[in-house]
Design a protein around this nucleic acid. Structure first.
Lengths: 213, 213
DNA sequence: TATGGATCCATA
DNA sequence: TATGGATCCATA
């Protein structure tokens, strides 16, 4: 997979220039989102473009999550205190990591969005809530660009459709990343839809880490 | 239908106390959301509660829209300039009216939310964008409360599930209204799902008004 | 029961 | 093609 579009708020730009652990976080994210390949034994991600909406989305995230969790030690499903403890309502952040260096702690929350475009608004709002409440220091959303989304499940999140709303994150460190396949080819296998494509690998959840403390 | 929960930001409270046309808008909205009945010849809204998720949602909005459009002269599908003209991306606001009195113009944008809960985040974000850009002066979201939503299509918007995110609208005049059925009865007809329940009545669209100018 | 998601529909 | 929506699924 490759990164093709990006929007970085001024606050995030400033952090990337001045904070080496934030830069490390950003590099881990970029390496991870570029790691998915298709078909599985290929070196690049080639999407079947035989017709509109012909591919499912679930397996796309697989390798990215694996790298984040197993190589870079990010966690999955980190609850926000504001939702879990204070309001007792609302689910966790998709991916999360705490970076510590020289007594400086930086917490990064990320959402890998392949759900319906409306779901991306919830992801953005959740990360924004985490930023406003000071529970994370940087927010990231990963999503396909429109050109790729055309061949995925109808109405999945795409960079261009969320873009008009990026300005709602102004004043906060936020990074939006739009990824694309390296190649389009009607002869590669279709990505299965439905639960067939669901990975059975158990995920590295935040609550398991907490439980082990 | 009846109003059972409500959240009004400080800015909206202030407007309601000081601006008589905003108060009028609010009263029109309240009267309209209370107007739906079921079954159609009844005086109240009684929902079939035979089992979880047994009713569709589309016909619920019917009478509310009718009153807003035909009695109170609200319009449907008002585009925001920021989306339509500037960013050339994104759809219109669901319901809209301009109130004018003594040379004072107040524009109210509203969304009647019966889509998936994630869709309510988009509605909120769109109205917020309209407020931040100064294209509307008051935003309103209408949605079922959880108790009612339990008997509607799975995962439809409900007041309680959006509630943790209300604080993202702080600093702006925003009103959230949660409605409920007056009665629950397993013997009233189910509200049909799918397009069967879709009204064929043509709606009073903003662009038609503009076109007639 | 609660929650994020995945999928396809209807209309312009 | 673009966009809001309606519906049901999977998992905890």
């Amino acid at each position: 997979m490759k990164i093709e579009k990006e929007f970085i708020t001024d606050e995030a730009k400033e952090l990337l220039l001045t904070d080496s652990i934030i830069l490390q976080a950003y590099n881990e994210v970029k390496t991870s989102i570029c790691s998915p390949v298709w078909p599985m034994k290929s070196k690049i991600f080639t999407i079947n473009n035989i017709e509109k909406n012909c591919n499912g989305v679930v397996p796309i995230k697989e390798l990215c999550y694996t790298l984040l969790e197993e190589t870079y030690n990010w966690y999955r499903e980190k609850p926000l205190d504001v939702l879990k403890l204070e309001k007792k309502k609302g689910g966790p952040i998709d991916v999360y990591k705490e970076f510590i260096k020289n007594n400086d702690l930086k917490r990064v929350g990320m959402e890998f969005e392949t759900g319906n475009i409306s779901s991306a608004h919830r992801s953005m709002n959740k990360l924004l809530l985490g930023l406003k409440r000071g529970e994370i220091d940087l927010a990231v959303i990963l999503m396909p660009i429109k050109q790729l989304a055309y061949y995925l499940t109808d109405r999945v999140t795409n960079f261009e459709e969320l873009e008009p709303y990026f300005e709602l994150t102004e004043g906060h460190p936020f990074i939006f990343i739009g990824f694309n396949a390296e190649a389009y080819d009607p002869n590669v296998p279709l990505i299965p839809k439905g639960s067939d494509g669901m990975s059975k690998r158990s995920i590295k959840k935040w609550k398991d880490k907490i439980g082990n403390k």
